[in-house]
Design a protein around this nucleic acid. Sequence first.
RNA 1: GCCGGGAUGGCGGAACUGGUAGACGCAGGGGACUUAAAAUCCCCCGGUGGUGACACUGUGCCGGUUCGACUCCGGCUCUCGGUACCA
Length: 821
Amino acid sequence: MSEEIYSPQFIEEKWQRHWQASGIDIASEEVGDARETYYCLEMFPYPSGNLHMGHVRNYCLGDAVARYKRMQGFNVLHPIGWDAFGLPAENAAIKHGKPPAEWTYANIEQMQVQLKRLGLSYDWSREIATCKPEYYRWEQWMFTKLMEKGLAYRKEAEVNWCDPCHTVLANEQVEDGVCWRCDTPVHKKNLAQWFIKITDYADELLNDLDQLKGWPDKVVGMQRNWIGKSSGAEVSFQVEGSNETLDIFTTRPDTLMGVTYMAVAAAHPLAIKAAENNAELADFLEECSVISTKEADVATMEKKGMPLGIHTIHPVSGEAVPVWVANFVLMSYGTGAVMSVPAHDERDYDFAKKYALNIKQVITNAAGDANVSEAAFTDPGVLINSGEFDGLKSGKAKKAITYWLTTQCKGEERTQFRLRDWLVSRQRYWGTPIPVIHCENCGTVAVPEQDLPVVLPEHLQPTGGASPLADCEEFVNVDCPQCGKAAKRETDTFDTFMESSWYMNSYTSANCDTAMVDGASMEKWAPVDQYIGGVEHAVLHLLYARFYHRLMRDVGLFDGDKVGSEPFKNLLTQGMVLLDGTKMSKSKGNTVDPKDIIQKYGADTARLFTLFAAPPERDLEWSDKGVEGASRFLHRVWVLLDKVGQTYPGQADSKVTKTLRRAIHTHIQRVTHAFEQGFAFNVAIAAMMELSNALNAFDAHDEEGKAVFEEGANALITMLAPLVPHFACECGERLGFETVAVMSAWPKVDASALIQDEINLVVQIQGKKRGEIAVSPNINQDEAMEIVQNTESISKWLEGQQIVKVILVKGRLLNIVVKPA
RNA sequence: GCCGGGAUGGCGGAACUGGUAGACGCAGGGGACUUAAAAUCCCCCGGUGGUGACACUGUGCCGGUUCGACUCCGGCUCUCGGUACCA
């Protein structure tokens, strides 16, 4: 059939040209297109200049999904774009003395070539770059809408500041007290900044997590954790000799009667006031503030405190409760003060022991013998020493005590979230300008819709310090849209997560330039059916995008009932690419350049290896030998196709042919199943290798054999198409496919081919395999037993045994339960 | 501490809904071809015992349910990821 050898470079270029010319990767917007839609999306790349193996893995996974769904008959949307704003461009600009725009656009061009070289089936007609005004203008528009609705606001607050990055950061961007980008410790600063009220959506974002059946538990758990809802009560303690109250939040109002002291943060007004004429206390507060800014090993820090010399009055008993300042109480959570119940809280217990404070037990277990002489008893239980609340169980007591406090105006039910509002302003140049004008008369004024977009000047040269926007007079100086007087533009830009929070919706509306998105297009395509990316965005991008999607819904951009409230239906978080057990990274110098692999073996081999070497969600250990194995497989299949249409001398055996046909169809079934079960491409490929091995072992001796062999070859090539598309297309052409392989219909299982006349029935005795018998698949128990009795190698195990029970699992096994006679 | 994963040969990993553990690949061993090497092809490859057919044993540990457990239940160990003086 073909004497040519498999030469990936040649055929890959050929088919990429072919696909582009035929437009098969374009998502159809034709009204008459009856196909069901499917939206497959991978997290879009930051245009750093070079594709690394992590990208390759991410995009090969997505491409396999998209191509598989196309072959299943779906109208697939598979777009790509560039998350093009961000700090690395500014850093590169400083280094090379070129504006970030230039660097960014050059990188995009370079990475486009690299992505195309991989043969990824993107709809390039919908490509976006977030740094373009036609993209970010809608983000600016949206922000002005949020200002109108009171969901975006400017407030002076204590915020996280990163010196090297010269900007503030959102809470989500601070990891272990250090900046997520540059790993330097952040410190607190008071600054007026722009926030978006994600806290208004905290409950919805939390509750809807239950809907996300197609998300990994891990990511759902991380988001739940991050939102951090806790229910309890706020309780007011009257300060002795004053009108003031000390308010605290507790999740354990049932332990109220066990309070023996109060603890406040060093920054709490009561502590500051008490320190005014107490030098020792002032020193201690100073010590606490120094430690807290370091934020290093907070967990191991010694618990320290000092009495403030003041007391509060217990709201129920009226007893005096001393107030302490403690270094473990955070001003930033709750009210900055806690009621301490050492008997039922480990931390309070340790603190009470250290400073010899009272420990009063108010909860016991069901048996009534719990004691707190050695440690705190933190389980819920039954109330004791609590007056009228005695005998209540913790759950009921929480309600009863909270209710009592409410009637006395000394407290109320309260829910506390860990989630803070999203800080979206950044003191950086290379980002979306915040569409706001500061006017001496009118205050902060949103840029009116007709004046949008506020275009970022692209020619500026950052220096690493303050944003060059502030010095750009033609940008800064503007007339106030309200009063017309000279005013100044806001020079902060948006957090780049603002762009990535809605790009998935933007793709649906590629043809719409009169609105942020088009409602009908959203209904057609959204939400994303399969989203694929790294787990590092579990509480960053993935939380913001869920939030922003709801904002778009509530601004009326689409119908929430039809599109849904969640932007991503299914999520696949792919593992990292490792070399020698550690993550590939430039700084560690343990990288493998995709370019080299593609040049040596071709894109298809690179794709096949990354899909085969590990399940998608697990880490993938890079192996040069493994790559060679993948390449070998493709060569073997290439040569295997030479057997199509051939007959070989020898006696045909219809049984052997039938067995091959059954193997073909069981493998179609297995491959399809692997694709459907969480895109287990590694398993699918293993099944295809088995099919290839089965075909290789077969020689056709007659017309029937020839036909079955061809059927198998066709199925194999078709199923390979989503994974190694160039290879499959070339092979498909050799085999005379009517449709190009990547657009061929996915093979169907012929159930009749799976039927067997004879099977090997496993025979077990006491659950232990003792042999096999060749029988009809429909054999009944008695018939099977008779064969067993006549099979010496098995029946010998039954000698001297009494048969208690026989279990026949149809088509699989026969288990005989015996006991000594 | 809490939350969520994971633990199967020398390695990456298979095993449908509880039904033959180790598919497929990599590495390794042996052989064929070759003057030789590479490539390719064939055979072997969890452990122990046995020349062998075969037997025993084996999926982190201890126990349980079941005719039968990698799979289900209870209790641990180790490991990876996330997170926290969160009141």
